[in-house]
Design a protein around this nucleic acid. Structure first.
Lengths: 218, 218
DNA sequence: GATCGACCGACCGACTGTCTGTCTGTCACT
DNA sequence: AGTGACAGACAGACAGTCGGTCGGTCGATC
């Protein structure tokens, strides 16, 4: 049975299917056959829309990162929120993402955490590391002007913080107990305060205030 | 032609071949066939010694990390060297590695830097992130006792530093100009000093003194 | 303004080449 | 005769290709 659709619609159908399958079985564990069966198309059709399996992944990541970074950027621009709280809100936007019903990228945050999909993991990491610091840096600059922070290298600070947070908190670190995790968190906040040249405890305080929404994830 | 050897000798022949091939063509780009042709054995033999292709990679990484961390550990234990210089020496030992003729792991440092081998990259990263901070932390503690550093979280500091350094300096970052790289280096050192609670410039000074050996690597 | 035909691109699925991992069996040494 | 190193034919799966088909569209023609 032959059903003709607009290219972009098909593309999205394929991406949706791949999204779900990669989430369930990982990139390597998912065959192109799985994808095309799920969509209900033939091999040729898949390769009409994407030039390779990896191309599908790239498209998925792009669709996802647009959502993710867009949401974070939006939060970052709301200058009515105090600097420190805004930073934390941006980070929370990154961790939660999706949910806000934009539809695509629903499952991807799940993928990121599993080490199987090394390539996807790496690519998403790259998006975050190159995409998030530029969003946060202006806020840091604001904080510097307000005398809350003090650092000659706001961008590099953010880069360091994001890279580390990603490596430690996102990853497979299931082997840590909750206590260890909390202690990691405390030392992390302490170190971030030092990097930013912020008063000791200034991040901690704000964090506890709006800390409710966080924490119990997974 | 049938040549019988001791299991471990064969294992090492296979690992040597894999080492070189992975370095040239990446893990995914290297077929098990390439490996067994290079060694001059049959498929069955390969799978007699290793249970899967990934198993070969794991063995390679283990062989390598023993060398790497062993060398670093050795440097770290030499208490005759001043604290800051010793830290830098450990880091240098990690970057250079091999060469000192231990024979195995000759090529691996090359792999680490290329993004193709996502899985290998990730596994080596993990070894470094979990292996290096425990080596460096005692040195930091020494520095704290000597009043050179001041931090309540020496381990987490090292973790942060190592994670960041790995992500930024090791990786694919070929897109950076030399100037950018230098500027990254400066901000990095500044941030590390802050994290450790060291006097500003204390790292920088020692670095310039023995800085000759570094720098011009690829 | 209804019909026709050329054209475009979405779509199909058999096919190719490659790759990993398995299995049966052989050989040498003890 | 038993054990472990070794061999190579083989199976099964998979990514990607290619020639060809079919449906929709749009301009020309009646």
């Amino acid at each position: 049975m032959r059903v003709v659709k607009e290219a972009e619609e098909r593309r999205n159908e394929i991406l949706d299917a791949a999204d779900e399958l990669f989430g369930q079985k990982g990139f390597d564990g998912t065959s192109t056959n799985d994808i095309l069966v799920k969509v209900g198309i033939a091999r040729g059709t898949l390769y009409h829309h994407f030039k390779s399996k990896e191309d599908i992944m790239d498209a998925l990541i792009e669709r996802y990162s647009i959502n993710l970074l867009g949401a974070a950027q939006e939060v970052a621009l709301d200058k009515s929120v105090p600097v420190i709280e805004r930073i934390l809100r941006v980070v929370m936007a990154l961790n939660i993402s999706s949910e806000n019903g934009s539809g695509s990228g629903k499952e991807i945050m799940e993928h990121i955490h599993r080490p199987q999909n090394a390539l996807m993991h790496q690519k998403i990491q790259k998006v975050i590391i190159s995409g998030v610091p530029p969003i946060l840096t202006p806020i840091i600059r604001e904080g510097i002007e307000q005398g809350k922070f003090n650092t000659p290298y706001p961008y590099e600070c953010m880069e360091m913080v994001i890279v580390y947070a990603n490596a430690i908190f996102d990853d497979d670190r299931v082997d840590l107990t909750n206590e260890e995790r909390t202690s990691r968190m405390l030392s992390f906040i302490f170190n971030v305060e030092r990097l930013l040249g912020a008063e000791s405890g200034s991040l901690m305080n704000v964090m506890q205030i709006l800390g409710k929404g966080r924490d119990g994830n997974e």
